[in-house]
Design a protein around this nucleic acid. Structure first.
Lengths: 193, 193
DNA sequence: CCGATTAGTATCGGGTCGATACTGAAAAGT
DNA sequence: ACTTTTCAGTATCGACCCGATACTAATCGG
Protein backbone atom coordinates (compact mmCIF):
# COMPACT_ATOMS: atom_id res chain seq x y z
CA UNK A 1 0.00 0.00 0.00
CA UNK A 2 2.98 2.23 -0.06
CA UNK A 3 3.69 3.94 -3.32
CA UNK A 4 6.20 6.36 -1.93
CA UNK A 5 9.62 6.06 -3.56
CA UNK A 6 11.19 7.25 -0.33
CA UNK A 7 9.96 4.17 1.46
CA UNK A 8 11.67 2.08 -1.16
CA UNK A 9 14.86 4.04 -0.66
CA UNK A 10 14.57 3.47 3.05
CA UNK A 11 14.36 -0.29 2.48
CA UNK A 12 17.22 -0.35 0.02
CA UNK A 13 19.48 1.50 2.40
CA UNK A 14 18.48 -0.59 5.37
CA UNK A 15 19.03 -3.86 3.56
CA UNK A 16 22.35 -2.59 2.32
CA UNK A 17 23.33 -1.68 5.88
CA UNK A 18 22.46 -5.15 7.05
CA UNK A 19 24.37 -6.79 4.23
CA UNK A 20 27.28 -4.54 5.01
CA UNK A 21 27.16 -5.76 8.59
CA UNK A 22 27.08 -9.32 7.26
CA UNK A 23 30.17 -8.61 5.21
CA UNK A 24 31.81 -7.22 8.30
CA UNK A 25 31.10 -10.41 10.18
CA UNK A 26 32.19 -12.60 7.28
CA UNK A 27 35.45 -10.73 6.85
CA UNK A 28 36.28 -10.45 10.52
CA UNK A 29 38.03 -13.81 10.62
CA UNK A 30 40.43 -12.73 7.91
CA UNK A 31 40.41 -9.18 9.19
CA UNK A 32 39.02 -7.93 5.93
CA UNK A 33 36.85 -4.84 5.79
CA UNK A 34 33.49 -4.80 4.02
CA UNK A 35 34.94 -2.84 1.15
CA UNK A 36 37.54 -5.54 0.57
CA UNK A 37 34.94 -8.22 0.23
CA UNK A 38 32.91 -5.95 -1.97
CA UNK A 39 35.88 -5.57 -4.26
CA UNK A 40 36.48 -9.31 -4.37
CA UNK A 41 32.85 -9.96 -5.18
CA UNK A 42 33.01 -7.39 -7.94
CA UNK A 43 36.12 -8.95 -9.44
CA UNK A 44 34.51 -12.35 -9.37
CA UNK A 45 31.91 -10.96 -11.74
CA UNK A 46 33.91 -8.54 -13.85
CA UNK A 47 34.59 -9.03 -17.53
CA UNK A 48 37.34 -7.65 -19.76
CA UNK A 49 35.81 -4.19 -19.81
CA UNK A 50 35.41 -3.94 -16.09
CA UNK A 51 38.37 -5.67 -14.45
CA UNK A 52 40.39 -2.50 -13.92
CA UNK A 53 40.93 -0.25 -10.91
CA UNK A 54 39.10 2.57 -12.61
CA UNK A 55 36.01 0.51 -13.18
CA UNK A 56 36.05 -0.75 -9.64
CA UNK A 57 36.32 2.82 -8.37
CA UNK A 58 33.30 3.81 -10.46
CA UNK A 59 31.42 0.81 -9.20
CA UNK A 60 32.12 1.43 -5.55
CA UNK A 61 31.67 5.19 -5.83
CA UNK A 62 35.16 5.82 -4.45
CA UNK A 63 38.13 7.69 -5.83
CA UNK A 64 40.85 5.94 -7.75
CA UNK A 65 43.37 6.72 -5.04
CA UNK A 66 41.28 5.03 -2.42
CA UNK A 67 40.70 2.01 -4.58
CA UNK A 68 44.39 1.80 -5.33
CA UNK A 69 45.01 1.37 -1.61
CA UNK A 70 42.37 -1.30 -1.31
CA UNK A 71 43.90 -3.22 -4.20
CA UNK A 72 47.34 -2.92 -2.68
CA UNK A 73 46.10 -4.67 0.43
CA UNK A 74 44.31 -7.39 -1.50
CA UNK A 75 47.42 -7.93 -3.58
CA UNK A 76 49.67 -8.22 -0.55
CA UNK A 77 47.27 -10.74 0.90
CA UNK A 78 47.51 -12.76 -2.27
CA UNK A 79 43.80 -12.54 -2.95
CA UNK A 80 44.07 -10.86 -6.34
CA UNK A 81 46.56 -10.68 -9.20
CA UNK A 82 47.48 -7.56 -11.10
CA UNK A 83 48.93 -7.58 -14.59
CA UNK A 84 49.46 -5.04 -17.30
CA UNK A 85 47.28 -4.76 -20.34
CA UNK A 86 49.00 -5.70 -23.57
CA UNK A 87 47.81 -2.92 -25.85
CA UNK A 88 47.51 -0.01 -23.40
CA UNK A 89 50.31 -0.39 -20.94
CA UNK A 90 48.83 2.19 -18.59
CA UNK A 91 45.95 0.01 -17.57
CA UNK A 92 46.22 -2.62 -14.92
CA UNK A 93 44.00 -5.65 -15.11
CA UNK A 94 42.74 -7.46 -12.07
CA UNK A 95 41.59 -10.97 -11.36
CA UNK A 96 40.94 -13.08 -8.32
CA UNK A 97 43.70 -15.47 -7.34
CA UNK A 98 42.71 -18.99 -6.41
CA UNK A 99 43.09 -17.95 -2.79
CA UNK A 100 40.66 -15.11 -3.43
CA UNK A 101 38.17 -17.43 -5.06
CA UNK A 102 38.54 -19.84 -2.19
CA UNK A 103 37.94 -17.07 0.31
CA UNK A 104 34.76 -15.95 -1.40
CA UNK A 105 33.57 -19.51 -1.67
CA UNK A 106 34.02 -20.08 2.04
CA UNK A 107 32.72 -16.73 3.20
CA UNK A 108 29.41 -17.13 1.32
CA UNK A 109 28.61 -13.45 1.74
CA UNK A 110 25.25 -13.75 0.01
CA UNK A 111 23.98 -16.59 2.13
CA UNK A 112 22.03 -14.38 4.51
CA UNK A 113 20.37 -12.71 1.55
CA UNK A 114 19.35 -15.96 -0.01
CA UNK A 115 17.81 -17.03 3.24
CA UNK A 116 16.03 -13.74 3.61
CA UNK A 117 14.47 -14.01 0.16
CA UNK A 118 13.45 -17.66 0.42
CA UNK A 119 9.79 -16.81 0.87
CA UNK A 120 9.54 -14.33 -1.97
CA UNK A 121 8.12 -15.82 -5.12
CA UNK A 122 10.28 -15.75 -8.25
CA UNK A 123 7.73 -13.55 -9.87
CA UNK A 124 7.95 -10.87 -7.21
CA UNK A 125 11.72 -11.08 -7.24
CA UNK A 126 11.63 -10.53 -10.97
CA UNK A 127 9.35 -7.53 -10.67
CA UNK A 128 11.39 -5.93 -7.93
CA UNK A 129 14.58 -6.56 -9.88
CA UNK A 130 13.11 -4.95 -12.93
CA UNK A 131 12.02 -1.84 -11.03
CA UNK A 132 15.39 -1.42 -9.35
CA UNK A 133 17.20 -2.06 -12.58
CA UNK A 134 15.31 0.75 -14.21
CA UNK A 135 15.97 3.01 -11.25
CA UNK A 136 19.65 2.29 -11.56
CA UNK A 137 19.63 3.02 -15.28
CA UNK A 138 17.92 6.37 -14.75
CA UNK A 139 20.26 7.17 -11.91
CA UNK A 140 23.25 6.54 -14.07
CA UNK A 141 21.87 8.55 -16.94
CA UNK A 142 21.26 11.51 -14.64
CA UNK A 143 24.79 11.44 -13.37
CA UNK A 144 26.24 10.57 -16.74
CA UNK A 145 27.96 7.84 -14.88
CA UNK A 146 29.20 4.68 -16.44
CA UNK A 147 26.79 1.82 -16.46
CA UNK A 148 27.24 -1.69 -15.19
CA UNK A 149 25.28 -4.64 -16.35
CA UNK A 150 25.48 -7.94 -18.13
CA UNK A 151 25.54 -8.18 -21.90
CA UNK A 152 22.22 -9.98 -21.92
CA UNK A 153 20.47 -6.63 -21.35
CA UNK A 154 22.78 -4.56 -23.49
CA UNK A 155 21.99 -2.89 -26.78
CA UNK A 156 25.47 -3.56 -28.07
CA UNK A 157 25.26 -7.31 -27.72
CA UNK A 158 24.97 -9.22 -30.98
CA UNK A 159 24.48 -12.94 -31.33
CA UNK A 160 26.78 -14.41 -33.93
CA UNK A 161 25.93 -18.03 -33.41
CA UNK A 162 24.60 -20.38 -30.82
CA UNK A 163 27.51 -19.77 -28.47
CA UNK A 164 29.40 -16.82 -29.85
CA UNK A 165 28.40 -13.21 -29.21
CA UNK A 166 29.88 -9.90 -30.16
CA UNK A 167 30.00 -6.51 -28.47
CA UNK A 168 28.89 -4.05 -31.14
CA UNK A 169 30.59 -1.19 -29.34
CA UNK A 170 34.05 -2.68 -28.99
CA UNK A 171 33.88 -5.26 -31.76
CA UNK A 172 35.25 -8.04 -29.60
CA UNK A 173 33.93 -11.55 -29.70
CA UNK A 174 32.54 -12.80 -26.43
CA UNK A 175 31.90 -16.28 -25.21
CA UNK A 176 28.54 -17.19 -23.73
CA UNK A 177 29.71 -17.17 -20.11
CA UNK A 178 31.37 -13.83 -20.54
CA UNK A 179 28.12 -12.22 -21.62
CA UNK A 180 26.74 -12.99 -18.19
CA UNK A 181 29.47 -11.12 -16.39
CA UNK A 182 29.41 -7.53 -15.28
CA UNK A 183 30.32 -5.09 -18.03
CA UNK A 184 31.19 -1.43 -17.72
CA UNK A 185 30.01 -0.35 -21.17
CA UNK A 186 26.52 -1.48 -20.56
CA UNK A 187 23.69 0.38 -22.23
CA UNK A 188 20.28 -0.79 -21.20
CA UNK A 189 17.90 -2.14 -23.78
CA UNK A 190 14.52 -0.48 -23.52
CA UNK A 191 11.43 -2.58 -23.09
CA UNK A 192 13.57 -5.65 -22.71
CA UNK A 193 11.53 -7.24 -19.92
CA UNK B 1 13.57 -12.49 -17.16
CA UNK B 2 15.65 -12.60 -14.03
CA UNK B 3 14.35 -14.47 -11.06
CA UNK B 4 17.68 -14.79 -9.31
CA UNK B 5 17.69 -13.24 -5.84
CA UNK B 6 21.40 -12.56 -6.23
CA UNK B 7 20.71 -10.17 -9.06
CA UNK B 8 18.36 -8.30 -6.78
CA UNK B 9 21.05 -8.18 -4.11
CA UNK B 10 23.47 -6.85 -6.67
CA UNK B 11 21.08 -4.03 -7.50
CA UNK B 12 20.35 -3.20 -3.90
CA UNK B 13 24.02 -2.95 -3.07
CA UNK B 14 24.83 -0.97 -6.16
CA UNK B 15 22.04 1.54 -5.55
CA UNK B 16 23.10 1.82 -1.94
CA UNK B 17 26.67 2.53 -3.03
CA UNK B 18 25.47 5.26 -5.32
CA UNK B 19 23.30 6.82 -2.65
CA UNK B 20 26.22 6.65 -0.28
CA UNK B 21 28.27 8.54 -2.82
CA UNK B 22 25.43 11.07 -3.05
CA UNK B 23 25.51 11.47 0.71
CA UNK B 24 29.24 12.01 0.51
CA UNK B 25 28.74 14.77 -2.01
CA UNK B 26 25.91 16.32 -0.05
CA UNK B 27 27.86 16.31 3.17
CA UNK B 28 31.13 17.51 1.73
CA UNK B 29 30.21 21.18 2.09
CA UNK B 30 29.69 20.75 5.81
CA UNK B 31 32.47 18.16 5.99
CA UNK B 32 30.05 15.56 7.20
CA UNK B 33 30.61 11.88 6.51
CA UNK B 34 27.90 9.69 4.98
CA UNK B 35 27.29 8.04 8.31
CA UNK B 36 26.58 11.41 9.91
CA UNK B 37 23.90 12.22 7.39
CA UNK B 38 22.51 8.74 7.76
CA UNK B 39 22.18 9.30 11.46
CA UNK B 40 20.48 12.65 10.94
CA UNK B 41 18.05 11.13 8.50
CA UNK B 42 17.29 8.38 10.94
CA UNK B 43 16.65 10.81 13.76
CA UNK B 44 14.34 12.82 11.57
CA UNK B 45 12.15 9.71 11.35
CA UNK B 46 12.57 8.17 14.79
CA UNK B 47 9.78 7.92 17.33
CA UNK B 48 9.88 7.59 21.11
CA UNK B 49 10.95 3.96 20.93
CA UNK B 50 13.77 4.54 18.50
CA UNK B 51 15.35 7.89 19.31
CA UNK B 52 18.19 6.46 21.42
CA UNK B 53 21.84 5.69 20.66
CA UNK B 54 21.19 2.00 21.06
CA UNK B 55 18.45 1.96 18.47
CA UNK B 56 20.55 3.98 16.08
CA UNK B 57 23.40 1.51 16.51
CA UNK B 58 21.07 -1.38 15.71
CA UNK B 59 19.77 0.48 12.71
CA UNK B 60 23.16 1.30 11.27
CA UNK B 61 24.63 -2.09 12.14
CA UNK B 62 27.42 -0.48 14.15
CA UNK B 63 28.53 -0.89 17.74
CA UNK B 64 27.29 1.39 20.46
CA UNK B 65 30.78 2.75 21.00
CA UNK B 66 31.09 3.79 17.38
CA UNK B 67 27.68 5.40 17.39
CA UNK B 68 28.49 7.22 20.58
CA UNK B 69 31.38 8.89 18.79
CA UNK B 70 29.22 9.83 15.84
CA UNK B 71 26.68 11.40 18.17
CA UNK B 72 29.39 13.29 19.99
CA UNK B 73 30.40 14.94 16.74
CA UNK B 74 26.84 15.76 15.76
CA UNK B 75 26.25 17.22 19.18
CA UNK B 76 29.35 19.39 19.05
CA UNK B 77 28.20 20.64 15.68
CA UNK B 78 24.86 21.60 17.17
CA UNK B 79 22.94 19.36 14.79
CA UNK B 80 21.31 17.20 17.46
CA UNK B 81 20.23 17.55 21.05
CA UNK B 82 20.70 14.95 23.76
CA UNK B 83 18.62 14.78 26.89
CA UNK B 84 18.02 12.26 29.60
CA UNK B 85 14.95 10.13 29.80
CA UNK B 86 12.71 10.91 32.75
CA UNK B 87 11.92 7.42 33.93
CA UNK B 88 15.13 5.57 33.10
CA UNK B 89 17.99 7.94 33.66
CA UNK B 90 20.47 5.69 31.89
CA UNK B 91 18.96 6.25 28.51
CA UNK B 92 19.76 9.24 26.40
CA UNK B 93 17.19 10.55 23.98
CA UNK B 94 18.07 12.23 20.75
CA UNK B 95 16.40 14.72 18.50
CA UNK B 96 17.39 16.94 15.64
CA UNK B 97 18.07 20.53 16.51
CA UNK B 98 16.61 23.18 14.25
CA UNK B 99 20.06 23.49 12.70
CA UNK B 100 20.00 19.77 12.01
CA UNK B 101 16.56 19.99 10.43
CA UNK B 102 17.70 22.93 8.36
CA UNK B 103 20.75 21.03 7.19
CA UNK B 104 18.70 18.03 6.08
CA UNK B 105 16.22 20.29 4.37
CA UNK B 106 18.93 21.99 2.36
CA UNK B 107 20.97 18.89 1.60
CA UNK B 108 17.98 17.04 0.11
CA UNK B 109 19.81 13.74 0.24
CA UNK B 110 16.96 11.84 -1.38
CA UNK B 111 16.63 14.12 -4.37
CA UNK B 112 18.74 11.97 -6.67
CA UNK B 113 16.65 8.96 -5.74
CA UNK B 114 13.40 10.72 -6.45
CA UNK B 115 14.70 11.69 -9.84
CA UNK B 116 15.89 8.18 -10.54
CA UNK B 117 12.48 6.71 -9.77
CA UNK B 118 10.45 9.26 -11.68
CA UNK B 119 9.70 6.86 -14.51
CA UNK B 120 8.67 3.92 -12.36
CA UNK B 121 4.95 3.60 -11.99
CA UNK B 122 3.49 3.78 -8.48
CA UNK B 123 2.33 0.25 -8.88
CA UNK B 124 5.77 -1.14 -9.57
CA UNK B 125 7.17 0.91 -6.71
CA UNK B 126 4.59 -0.58 -4.44
CA UNK B 127 5.38 -4.12 -5.55
CA UNK B 128 9.10 -3.67 -5.18
CA UNK B 129 8.60 -2.09 -1.77
CA UNK B 130 6.48 -4.97 -0.65
CA UNK B 131 9.04 -7.56 -1.77
CA UNK B 132 11.92 -5.78 -0.08
CA UNK B 133 9.88 -5.22 3.04
CA UNK B 134 9.27 -8.92 3.31
CA UNK B 135 12.93 -9.65 2.69
CA UNK B 136 13.83 -7.28 5.48
CA UNK B 137 11.35 -8.90 7.85
CA UNK B 138 12.72 -12.38 7.14
CA UNK B 139 16.26 -11.10 7.48
CA UNK B 140 15.53 -9.64 10.84
CA UNK B 141 13.76 -12.77 12.02
CA UNK B 142 16.75 -14.89 11.02
CA UNK B 143 19.14 -12.70 12.95
CA UNK B 144 16.74 -12.20 15.80
CA UNK B 145 17.50 -8.57 15.29
CA UNK B 146 15.24 -5.77 16.32
CA UNK B 147 12.82 -4.60 13.71
CA UNK B 148 12.23 -1.16 12.36
CA UNK B 149 9.06 -0.04 10.74
CA UNK B 150 6.14 2.31 11.03
CA UNK B 151 3.16 1.53 13.23
CA UNK B 152 0.89 1.35 10.22
CA UNK B 153 2.27 -2.12 9.46
CA UNK B 154 2.62 -3.24 13.04
CA UNK B 155 0.60 -5.91 14.81
CA UNK B 156 0.72 -3.95 18.04
CA UNK B 157 -0.97 -0.89 16.65
CA UNK B 158 -4.53 -0.33 17.83
CA UNK B 159 -6.84 2.38 16.65
CA UNK B 160 -8.62 4.05 19.55
CA UNK B 161 -10.38 6.75 17.61
CA UNK B 162 -10.11 8.71 14.43
CA UNK B 163 -6.83 10.29 15.43
CA UNK B 164 -5.64 8.42 18.47
CA UNK B 165 -3.75 5.14 18.32
CA UNK B 166 -2.22 2.90 20.92
CA UNK B 167 0.80 0.62 20.95
CA UNK B 168 -0.44 -2.66 22.31
CA UNK B 169 3.03 -3.70 23.35
CA UNK B 170 3.96 -0.65 25.37
CA UNK B 171 0.51 0.63 26.17
CA UNK B 172 1.32 4.19 25.17
CA UNK B 173 -1.04 6.41 23.30
CA UNK B 174 0.26 7.62 19.96
CA UNK B 175 -0.80 10.49 17.81
CA UNK B 176 -1.52 9.94 14.15
CA UNK B 177 1.73 11.48 12.92
CA UNK B 178 3.77 9.45 15.35
CA UNK B 179 2.41 6.21 13.93
CA UNK B 180 4.08 7.09 10.65
CA UNK B 181 7.51 7.40 12.19
CA UNK B 182 10.14 4.70 12.46
CA UNK B 183 9.62 2.42 15.44
CA UNK B 184 12.03 -0.06 16.95
CA UNK B 185 9.45 -2.48 18.34
CA UNK B 186 7.94 -3.14 15.00
CA UNK B 187 6.42 -6.52 14.33
CA UNK B 188 5.24 -6.98 10.79
CA UNK B 189 1.63 -7.72 10.11
CA UNK B 190 1.28 -10.71 7.81
CA UNK B 191 -0.72 -10.39 4.63
CA UNK B 192 -1.11 -6.71 5.27
CA UNK B 193 -0.88 -5.63 1.63
C1' DC C 1 21.19 -4.04 50.03
C1' DC C 2 24.36 -6.43 46.98
C1' DG C 3 25.42 -8.73 42.53
C1' DA C 4 23.98 -8.74 37.65
C1' DT C 5 22.52 -6.45 33.88
C1' DT C 6 21.93 -2.48 30.89
C1' DA C 7 22.69 2.36 28.47
C1' DG C 8 26.06 4.95 27.41
C1' DT C 9 30.98 7.04 27.34
C1' DA C 10 36.26 7.23 26.99
C1' DT C 11 40.34 5.74 24.96
C1' DC C 12 43.19 3.40 21.77
C1' DG C 13 44.79 1.53 17.42
C1' DG C 14 44.14 -0.25 12.81
C1' DG C 15 42.32 0.95 8.76
C1' DT C 16 39.28 3.78 5.24
C1' DC C 17 39.03 7.59 2.47
C1' DG C 18 39.73 11.96 -0.21
C1' DA C 19 43.12 15.49 -1.61
C1' DT C 20 47.17 16.37 -3.65
C1' DA C 21 51.07 15.50 -6.10
C1' DC C 22 53.41 12.43 -8.77
C1' DT C 23 54.99 8.74 -12.76
C1' DG C 24 54.66 6.90 -17.02
C1' DA C 25 51.95 5.87 -21.26
C1' DA C 26 49.01 7.30 -24.92
C1' DA C 27 46.66 10.67 -27.71
C1' DA C 28 46.43 15.14 -29.89
C1' DG C 29 48.06 19.35 -31.64
C1' DT C 30 51.71 21.77 -34.27
C1' DA D 1 58.76 14.31 -35.15
C1' DC D 2 58.12 16.76 -31.03
C1' DT D 3 55.70 19.03 -27.73
C1' DT D 4 51.47 19.35 -25.02
C1' DT D 5 47.65 17.42 -23.04
C1' DT D 6 45.16 13.81 -21.28
C1' DC D 7 44.69 9.57 -18.92
C1' DA D 8 45.51 5.14 -15.67
C1' DG D 9 47.41 4.30 -11.80
C1' DT D 10 50.44 5.01 -7.45
C1' DA D 11 52.41 7.38 -3.20
C1' DT D 12 51.86 10.11 0.69
C1' DC D 13 49.41 12.50 4.17
C1' DG D 14 45.92 13.71 7.42
C1' DA D 15 41.12 13.46 9.00
C1' DC D 16 38.10 10.38 10.59
C1' DC D 17 35.49 5.73 11.01
C1' DC D 18 35.06 1.78 13.59
C1' DG D 19 35.55 -2.15 16.87
C1' DA D 20 37.65 -3.69 21.22
C1' DT D 21 38.22 -2.93 25.71
C1' DA D 22 37.54 -0.91 29.89
C1' DC D 23 34.90 2.11 32.36
C1' DT D 24 30.67 4.82 34.88
C1' DA D 25 26.22 5.14 36.34
C1' DA D 26 21.45 3.55 36.66
C1' DT D 27 18.17 -0.20 37.07
C1' DC D 28 16.70 -4.77 38.19
C1' DG D 29 16.49 -9.03 40.80
C1' DG D 30 16.79 -11.35 44.69
Amino acid sequence: MDKNPLVLLELVERLANLMRAELRKAGADESLQPVHLHALIYLSKANRYSNTPQALAAYLGLTKGTVSQTLLILDRRGLIERYQDDVDRRVVRLRLSTAGEQLLYEAQPALAWQNATRNISPNRIRNATSALRETLATFQEDNEGAMFGSCTDCTHCQKLSQRIFRCGLMGDRLSGPETRRLCWLHEAKREGE
